[in-house]
Design a protein around this nucleic acid. Structure first.
Length: 550
RNA sequence: GCGCCCAUAGCUCAGCUGGAUAGAGCGACAGCCUCCGGAGCUGUAGGUCAGAGGUUCGAAUCCUCUUGGGCGCACCA
């Protein structure tokens, strides 16, 4: 059992035993680590109901705990009545053994084993290349999926293509117009058409493939041709960009299949049967206000065509029927009101409130030449994921997009990213790994390498202050990853890895590893190996490489 | 006008279910390589946590209002 969980359950048990009102005892990090590894303010909370001094309550709990001395030092009562707990040396030193014996298992857990979780993300329409906003979506979605997987969940990464809507027609018409303009410069461009340069590129590709065959064909007769050509090319580009970004999907779901199988109608019928849908003004409405939305929403327009909402509800109903215990959707802030109506629809269908969890991330503002760049697929200015990867690379892009929590309005300074990319913290973390790796590649005592010799018996020689700090940073990681998974917040992992890298650099700077004292040297080599393993596992979790040399 | 999100050091951001003197990186200034990798390390300066009330033993964190910013308010997708 993890130390924090041990404290929580022991303290809770003691309170229950005494009949004290404590359903769940808080165990948290002291804000100053010098106070201890964990702390509980439980005595402060109990002071009033028990009408006793908090320090007195804390002392009673401390005396009653009788913790295992190989894991814990004696608890302390401090301040107004805090209980402070410090992990014992043998426990901390043992983290090195665990990291060497199971190099890729330190941050893994099986607490979500058997849970089937669907993470749907990106899901960009195939009407244009992925831009930096989609990149944030991709990084977050993939990071969250990886976090769940690390906790033992059975994770499916899924991409939903809206390939059935009017946007695809506009795309086809846009490419068609550019194609015609190659020979007729005055050919009209659709009012709502996509302006990007990539449309003209697609038109040229179309011309290479089909020549003049469609020069004189009216749009009505060849729209399907242009639509599918453009859609397929763009989809292929999206897949290629994502693959390069190290994001791979298990399921590519096409909206069009929902209509083919009649699942939109089934969903509509079910909503009607449940009394959650009604007719008004010739349209069919969802009673979204009954489930927390600010107004009711149209499911089927008076024209008889469904809105976006109905197929999306059908799609999530499909996920539910495929047996997922939980669905996670990653959406940009421009969809936040949409998340509310989705939740309303799913609640109406009878799903538990937390079956769908939506992660709403805020827009990225791009700064280039000191000015804000407005992002738009329709207009011709955007920064694509591909350009971003060309400029700063996969590792920097992923790290940068993951290191901030989703609800910050982040700014991405392109000039800074391009010009001063060595200042990015990802290099700091990667360098820590490369430095440690260097110790082993240049090791003049290969026989002391724990990879060959096994875990040394001299781990109790790791007692320098910076060694203990480093051991603590290593032992923190499993809790950080577990909490990050529960909170859907990958940035907690980047923070923890930066902290680990900092501790690694500090230790490396102050202490020589290959000292003459064989027992100490073996212990330090083991610590170096343990740190390298932890850095590698943590970086891998985030889809970032851990280079041996830089 | 209504709804959602945000406001913490010069800049970019952390601060985990409210807890004990508010942190990091970058930037600025001053230092450290005879030594396993200096993409490193050490030190200094820099904050009325947007403002005002409230709840609480305790508030950057919860509630209300105000100010400022982003996003959304379609029988578009």
């Amino acid at each position: 059992m993890r130390p924090r969980d041990e404290l929580r359950s022991r303290l809770t048990a003691l309170c229950v035993q005494r009949g004290w009102p404590a359903e769940e005892v808080a165990v948290e990090r002291p804000n100053d680590r010098a106070r201890g590894d964990w702390a509980s303010p439980v005595a402060l909370a109990l002071a009033r109901p028990l009408r006793r001094a908090p320090r007195e309550i804390a002392s009673e709990l401390a005396d009653a705990l009788s913790l295992d001395s190989t894991r814990w030092e004696e608890p302390e009562v401090a301040g107004a009545g805090f209980l402070n707990f410090r992990l014992a040396r043998p426990y901390l030193q043992d983290v090195v053994r665990r990291l060497i014996e199971e190099p890729d298992g330190h941050m893994r857990s099986d607490r979500l084993a058997g849970r089937r979780i669907n993470v749907e993300f990106v899901s960009s329409n195939p009407t244009g290349p992925l831009h930096v906003g989609h990149a944030r979506n991709a990084a977050l979605g993939d990071g969250i999926a990886a976090l769940f997987a690390s906790q033992g969940a059975d994770v499916t990464r899924e991409y939903y293509f809206n390939d059935a809507g009017r946007q695809m027609d506009i795309l086809g018409a846009s490419v068609h117009a550019r194609y015609r303009q190659m020979t007729e410069p005055d050919f009209p461009f659709p009012d709502e058409g996509y302006q990007g340069e990539y449309i003209a590129d697609l038109a040229r590709e179309f011309a290479v493939e089909h020549g003049d065959a469609f020069r004189d064909v009216p749009l009505e007769e060849c729209l399907a041709e242009f639509r599918s050509f453009a859609g397929e090319r763009i989809s292929a580009g999206i897949r290629a960009d994502l693959e390069r970004f190290r994001v791979s999907f298990d399921v590519w779901f096409n909206e069009s299949t929902l209509y083919r199988d009649g699942r939109t109608e089934q969903t509509l019928e079910e909503l009607k049967a449940l009394g959650a849908a009604y007719e008004k003004d010739g349209a069919t409405w969802l009673r979204a206000t009954d489930y927390g939305d600010t107004e009711d929403r149209v499911l089927v327009k008076s024209t008889g065509h469904p809105t976006y909402l109905l197929p999306d509800l059908a799609y999530h109903r499909d996920k539910h029927e495929r047996g997922f215990d939980q669905a996670i959707d990653i959406w940009g802030a421009d969809h936040h009101s949409y998340a509310v109506r989705m939740q309303a629809g799913l609640t109406a269908l009878g799903y538990p409130a937390d079956w769908l969890r939506t992660v709403i991330y805020q827009q990225i503002s791009l700064i280039e030449d000191g000015e804000e760049v407005r992002l738009s697929t329709r207009k011709n200015r955007m920064v694509t994921l591909r350009e971003l990867l060309d400029d700063v690379g996969v590792d920097v892009t992923r790290w940068f997009l993951l290191m901030r929590k989703g609800d910050t309005h982040m700014t991405f300074d392109l000039d800074l990213a391009r010009r001063q990319s060595d200042e990015n913290p990802v290099y700091y973390v990667q360098y820590a790994h490369a430095r440690l790796a260097g110790v082993f590649t240049r090791n003049e005592r290969p026989e002391w390498d724990p990879a060959l010799a096994g875990v040394p018996g001299s781990l109790d020689r790791l007692n320098a202050e910076r060694e203990i700090d480093l051991l603590r940073a290593l032992d923190d990681l499993p809790d950080v990853v577990a909490d990050a998974a529960d909170a859907l917040e990958p940035h907690r992992v980047t923070d923890a890895l930066e902290e680990l890298a900092r501790r690694t650099h500090l230790w490396y700077h102050d202490h020589r590893i290959l000292v003459d004292d064989e027992h100490l040297a073996r212990a330090r080599l083991a610590l170096a190996r343990a740190c390298a393993n932890a850095l590698r596992e943590g970086l891998a979790l985030l889809g970032v490489e851990a280079p041996e040399t830089m």
